[in-house]
Design a binder for these strands. Sequence first.
RNA 1: AGGAGCGUAGCCCAACUGGCAGAGGCAUAUGGCUUAGACCCAUACAAGUAAGGGUUCAAAUCCCUUCGCUCCUACCA
Length: 859
Amino acid sequence: MATPTKDYDFTAIEPKWQAFWAENRTYRAKDFEEKPTFYVLDMFPYPSAAGLHIGHPEGYTASDALKRFKKAQGFNVLHPMGWDAFGLPTEQYAIKTGTHPAVTTKDNVASFKQQLTRLGFTYDWEREVNTTDPGYVKWTQWIFKQLFRQGLAYVDEKPVWFCPELGTVLANEEVLNTPEGPRSERGAFPVERRPIRQWVLRITEYAERLIAGLKDLDWPDSTKRLQENWIGRSEGGEIAFDVAGHDARLEVFTTRPDTLYGATYMVIAPEHPMVATITSAEQKAAVDSYIEKAKRKSDLERAELSKEKTGVWTGANAINPVNGQEIPVWVADYVLMTYGTGAIMAVPAHDERDFAFAKEFELEIIQVIDDDGSAEKDPSGMLTAAYTGPGKLINSGEHSGCDHETAKNAIIAKLAAENRGKATVNFKLRDWLFSRQRYWGEPFPIVWVSEADYAKADDSLKSLERPVSCQIDGETRFALALPDSELPLELPEVESYTPSPDGQSPLSKAGEWLCVYIDPQTGATSPAARDGWLAGARETNTMPQWAGSCWYYLRYIDPENTAALIDPDKAKYWGMPDLYIGGAEHAVLHLLYARFWHHVLYDLGVVSDPEPFKQLFHQGIILGEDGEKMSKSRGNVVNPDTIIEGYGADALRLYLMFLGPLEAMKPWNTQGIEGIARFLRKIWRLVVDENGGLHSRVGATEKLDEASERVLHVTIKKVTEDYDSLGFNTAISQMMICTNQLAKADALTRESIETVLKLVAPLAPHLAEELWQRLGHNNSIVEAGWPKYDESKLVKDRVKIIFQVNGKYRGDTELPADHSKDEAIAAAKACERVQSFIEGKTIKKEIYVPGKIVNIVAV
RNA sequence: AGGAGCGUAGCCCAACUGGCAGAGGCAUAUGGCUUAGACCCAUACAAGUAAGGGUUCAAAUCCCUUCGCUCCUACCA
């Protein structure tokens, strides 16, 4: 039944078609259909209590439109949606109100879903995933188990933010940097780094492959570069320095072994384990106080104060292995314990930081790379800044005169022969801290047992190559993984969601849940003791939110599977996402973590392609009307619901795409939506007359006038191409041109109006379906296919040729489209104005750009 | 400090990758329609591409310098 409205009444039309698509399962993705497939993936949202903001519908409109477009073109399209539903806000709400996070999650998901539906987004809800569902958690835990068994997970004491006042661990985003130092977001209390037992994933073992894999991806270059820099590969060497008077060796990493002769001092990080052993009695007080000060600085402060270098001599000297020189060993916080070996050889002549430090503390500066006169020097011939360029070695003993690149290898080779050094590769990337002291996350499928019991357990429960152990309550415990039959391990009910004051997870108070007995053969568990079973304690940390979002795109392919993560045949049928649309804020972490897991799954044979996301697109950010980032505090937030009430979902969708290029950052302008509303009303009036009947113009002719015919085919071509490249703003503009043209025509063919509807349907699906129905169809417009343009209709038989003399416009004319170069030039020369400009000059050159321009160069 | 990107009518944006700077929309103005307003229709309207220099027959587009804005990164040896 068509709605009876005479005017474009979106409030009646939109719910009707949303119900239609749902009832008819119009956009259901059927496995194994004999069609080419297209998998378009949105970054799934965290279902917050606040609901959708305008940024969500931007990317989602693009993917919804692309989905409808591809389906009309005959693809079997997979376009699913789900919920990244573990997370802090829900947990904090639980702490405040006592409401179970699962309850809050359910409510929030329901309202998000309703909002998405109101926007006309037709996800295949039969494939909905929710990272908090037990059926999903099972496989997240299963993947973790594989990582564990491959030796890619271990436990370590890692510093995390802890607030003594609040008695809780804080996430990075809950810590603010203030002039007084790091403070808690809540209450502004001082916070400190405290080492707590954590699970860590060895992502660094995949560093090399994660860089190499970027090469063939169709991603924005900036994002690829970002990941590459984040992984931060650098080649260099490790060199061992003896410490004078100690039986100790100081290992350093350097990318410039060629400058070894210029090393005039060394620096070790304040946290370096050797600080205590090599510091002399005289220097101990100064060093201790320096270390104490460094400890209290946040990472940011340490970086911020970079202009002034600080440090203290340890009282020890090291011996330069190439020339036996004794050089002082300093402690300074510009050297980071977390990179390389936590110690450096300082070459002030050729490193800016070392130079600044040497100047500050009046340390020796020896130039060992010849700058060939290119570096600035003071009157005495001393460098005024570090010289980091290339050159031949000087002051370098037997290596003097050698090119610095060859010297790198030569010096490392020499040291290697003496067992004092080797070539190495270092990464900025650090292992991934993979646990949280929180309730609302996936429990680890891990049980801790004593060393003696560990020996009794079956190998299938262990990380064989690299057993994982840690100290719990002063005893050494070993990790066993639960067997698949015990998955999912669900969260226990707890009385309080607040972490315990000692920084342990809320699960540490989960009473009976914690203690468990394990069958050493099968890993089966029991709450009660059984003969021969091992007494164990469950892991109380939970996984971070990344865990669920690392692999959700796989689960859409086979969301209900209880026997496997995904069915290999289905995975093969759908393949990996053809396009992934999401914000650039996830350029590094989410996309890197997901790639890491995917590489591991590839190694395990679960997926058949090492890279998950072939093509990536970042939608831009929509700013408030004031051009500032939307935020509650600025009061410039645009609520999608308000726009839908005033203009309808179709208008909002169209307008979001019309604001500017999808990837651009662009300000919202409420007034501008009027133009889109007019456009939609104009399309309505092309089909429906004042009385609500079919407009008499439609079908009043069998042949469109020539101008309209041409515009129509140009529009089909342009819109098709633009949709393919996500150029929605220009596609809309072209459709406006087209409807303006058709609105002027006295009579329209039925086909022409149907074509317009098909073209606009991906963006304004409700309007298109309604008018399609009013034209007498009873199926969805997406079933009607995609229009094709006729090349012959595009060519004009006459074209305008511009005449230029010396590059300046001097006239034009119309010529038949198939004119020759000579004809064009002759026409130009025949033009009076052109003649007046070339008169008395010699023609040096005649340039002809086919179909466009004639330029006569005359002097 | 380093890296990336951007700068075109009052505003949002186009310009086939070097070929007449303008397609579209907003706003504005005038007129028509209307009892009136809204809607609708018609007409009008504007920049020489941040500034300067270079390459070229030809530059918004390529190169250099400067200015402005945005985004990343944060002593990675």
